[in-house]
Design a protein around this nucleic acid. Structure first.
Length: 578
DNA sequence: ATAGGGTTAG
């Protein structure tokens, strides 16, 4: 029953009905001969399970396992061998065979053991097979293995990989005892699902709980959360911990540090760590190049890319091309971006995916080549995605192009009509082009369709705590003082001659301003303010931030949805190109 | 024999 519900098309037939099937039989005979020598049988079975060239029929393997159990000296046991094969499958290019083998082994009455589940669940995590995972979970409970530590750890990982952090947390909370892996699975699970607050809270809890010492994996997970939240102070604390515990020789730890520092706007420190790594790999190069990209150092990013190929002889992959192409688009490096896109296809024989086309559309579009960007989307060797059209729509906003904007909007409406922000963008395009009626109409249509607007949210880290502000937040516990400060800033801005762009919605209460106002009040004069925002910064706020940096003599590092703005002395590192 | 980690456009 259970096996049937797991994977209907691949249920192994019962042995009595198929024992005479020719190809399977001959393979079985071969196996039978090999079974005389246990070691050889084990190797053969392992290669059948994991090898690309071996038969993919897990039923055959299960049958062989049964034969093995009838051999004069049935050691290792079929259960043991099944578990071993499951383990190798979880690291093979065919994790889906693990489910099939498990089902088959049940049909052949090979009993599961606690060791069966960690590797089986690992395969399911790779496949993001939530439904099958839940069934296995139920099965584990039924078999009485639910307290098995390793299985439970794997379950936490599986649920978190599938985005079900609540179910992961339930499994975590219900554990009779936890080891460092349990904590790591849960903290990393939160971090990978962008729940950095929850991840850091649990990291703190781990330290308070005592008894379990954090290891490198814990620190990597915590750093990932710091990177996501832009929590520099906590990240620095983690860095000191890493040094104190001599974890700084590990490439993974250093890569996480590079990512954390660059996502907190400290690209110099990120580069310094990178330069001190003894042996660098592709992931470390990707992290530093991506850091340079989001911090607006496009030319340096390209230099590093060339260095990687020339000095280390490392072949680039699809992932690093996303980073290096986005470096070009953030810095407006049109020719370099085109060159790299061509090299990707020609020299490196990689197939550009929607992501790479997205970078190119962004690069061309923002550089004002809207026609070319449109042409690229239309000639893409796959069905253009809503995201691609949305990227073009964003470029139309920058260049106030109503015509192409409408074309893009039409495609978006067809592909993904309920996404937040598209109507706002289109309405703003109309507004900046002076078509007020169309702008209003677009806003009305949005309301009529019941499409909300993703609320803008900004966070600022002060004294190791993360404070978050939502747009026009009246309920925030610091609301009163923040509003007083915002009004004061507003007056200063007007005194400095700042006239907001009235064509689009008023931006004076955007969340980044509240965060900055709070930071200005709560920190000593001259302290750098670091703010992370979930959306892109609008033009008005960008102008305002430049002025605030000058008026109050502060550096403001604002991380946007996609990049950094370093405001200082009235200007921004992005050179107003973003 | 088993479980957890680092890079990814808009």
């Amino acid at each position: 029953m259970f096996a049937a519900s797991l994977s209907p098309p691949s249920i192994p037939p019962h042995p009595s009905t198929t024992a005479t099937t020719a190809p399977a039989l001959s393979e079985t005979k071969q196996l039978q001969a090999l079974l005389l020598k246990t070691g050889a049988a084990q190797n053969r079975l392992l290669s059948l399970g994991a090898n690309r060239t071996g038969p993919a029929d897990p039923s055959l393997i299960a049958r062989a396992l049964v034969l093995l159990s009838h051999s004069p000296n049935p050691t290792p046991t079929p259960s043991f061998l099944r578990n071993t094969i499951l383990q190798s499958l979880s690291q093979s290019p065919h994790p889906q065979r693990a489910i099939l083998l498990y089902s088959a082994s049940l049909e052949y009455a090979i009993p599961p053991t606690p060791h069966t589940f960690p590797s089986l669940l690992k395969s399911l995590s790779l496949l993001l097979a939530l439904r099958e995972g839940s069934q296995i979970h139920a099965h584990i409970v039924k078999l009485g293995f639910k307290s098995d530590l390793h299985s439970r750890n794997a379950l936490i990982h599986l649920y978190a990989s599938c985005g079900c952090v609540d179910r992961a947390r339930k499994a975590f909370d219900g554990m009779p005892q936890r080891d460092v892996v349990s904590w790591n699975a849960m903290i990393a699970g939160y971090a990978r699902n962008k729940l950095s607050g929850a991840a850091l809270e649990l990291f703190r809890e781990l330290q308070l709980a005592g008894g379990v010492a954090p290891d490198e994996v814990t620190l990597v997970a915590a750093l990932t959360a710091c990177a996501d939240a832009g929590a520099l102070r906590l990240g620095e604390w983690a860095h000191r911990y890493i040094r104190r515990h001599r974890m700084d020789g590990r490439i993974g730890v250093n890569t996480a540090l590079i990512d954390m520092y660059s996502k907190c706007g400290c690209i110099d420190r990120a580069v310094e760590i990178f330069e001190n790594i003894a042996v660098r790999n592709l992931v470390a190069w990707t992290a530093v190049i991506n850091g340079l990209a989001i911090n607006g150092c496009g030319r340096t990013a390209i230099e590093y890319f060339d260095r990687m190929v020339m000095e280390d002889g490392i072949e680039p992959d699809e992932v690093i091309f996303i980073s290096v192409l986005s470096a070009c688009s953030h810095s407006g490096l049109l020719d370099e971006g085109r060159r790299l896109f061509d090299e990707m296809k020609g020299q490196y024989r990689l197939v550009p995916q929607a992501e790479h086309y997205g970078c190119m559309v962004d690069l061309l579009g923002r550089a004002g080549r809207l026609d070319e960007a449109l042409e690229l989307i239309r000639t893409a060797p796959f069905k253009p995605t809503a995201v691609l059209w949305r990227t073009l729509l964003g470029a139309c906003k920058v260049h106030k192009n109503v015509g192409i904007g409408e074309a893009a909007m039409q495609e978006i409406q067809r592909l993904d009509p309920h996404h937040h922000g598209d109507h706002v963008l289109m309405s703003n395009i109309y507004a900046t082009a002076g078509q007020q009626d169309d702008a209003v109409h677009m806003r009305r249509r949005m309301k009529k369709q019941g499409i909300g607007k993703e609320p803008g949210c900004s966070v600022i880290e002060l004294d190791g705590r993360v404070y978050s502000f939502v747009v026009e937040d009246k309920l925030h516990r610091h609301s009163r003082e923040v509003h007083v400060m915002l009004d004061r800033i507003e007056r200063e801005l007007r005194k400095a001659g700042n006239v907001p762009e009235t064509a689009v919605a008023p931006a004076a209460h955007h969340s980044e301003r509240a965060a900055v106002a709070f930071g200005l009040m709560r920190t000593a004069p001259g302290t750098t303010l670091r703010v992370v925002k979930n959306l892109r910064v609008c033009e008005d706020c960008h102008v305002a931030m430049k002025l605030i940096s000058k008026i109050y003599g502060r550096e403001i590092v604002l991380r946007d949805r996609s990049r950094f703005h370093h405001f200082k002395d009235g200007s921004c590192s992005c050179g107003d190109y973003w």
